[in-house]
């Protein structure tokens, strides 16, 4: 074998190895790449608000799956209008909690049916329990009750001392 032929073989070997390395490398790069696709799945969307009607905007929100009531399925913040949405993957009672920094906690339990997940039902998720904060007339009654209790406690303490 002449010197020229050996050089050509060596060059061919180097090019092959480099090509292989580039192929493997590019494969690795694709494996770490990101992408997205649009889903046609049904999502549950809820709006959380204060008793005064103001939305619970940008507050901590957690979604708990029926499968695991302790580890959250989804965590994040409610949007500008106090809305939280998620895509349930199994049927059952899903718990959604929104809590602000003042300790106000709104909790909803949504019953998701199999039809809802499959997308065949228009309204298949229904609210089983609403906000933990009383609303409207009930709120007024509770507020008045609270004030009444405070004055009654004062009257009792005054009588005892």
């Amino acid at each position: 074998m002449s010197g020229n032929n050996r050089r050509t073989l060596n060059t061919g070997f180097v090019v092959t190895v480099l090509g292989l390395a580039l192929f493997v490398g590019s494969g690795t790069a694709f494996a770490h790449g990101v992408g997205y696709r649009r889903l046609g799945m049904s999502a549950v969307a809820l709006e959380f608000f204060y008793s005064t009607g103001e939305s619970m905007a940008y507050q901590n929100a957690r979604v708990y799956s029926p499968k695991d009531g302790k580890a959250f399925f989804q965590s994040g913040l409610s949007d500008e209008f106090g809305r939280v949405s998620f895509v349930p993957n199994i049927q059952g009672d899903w718990r959604i909690m929104v809590k602000d920094e003042e300790g106000h906690l709104a909790e909803a339990v949504i019953t998701v049916t199999e039809e809802f997940i499959l997308g065949s039902g228009e309204v298949s998720a229904e609210t089983a329990a609403g906000s933990s904060i009383p609303m409207g007339g009930e709120l007024l009654i509770r507020a008045l009750l609270g004030v009444s209790v405070l004055f009654n406690i004062a009257a009792f303490v005054r009588k005892c001392t």
Partner: peptide, 9 residues
């Protein structure tokens, strides 16, 4: 509640 920035207090 009073709106302060993005939240309410």
């Amino acid at each position: 509640n009073i709106r302060v920035g993005p939240g309410a207090t």
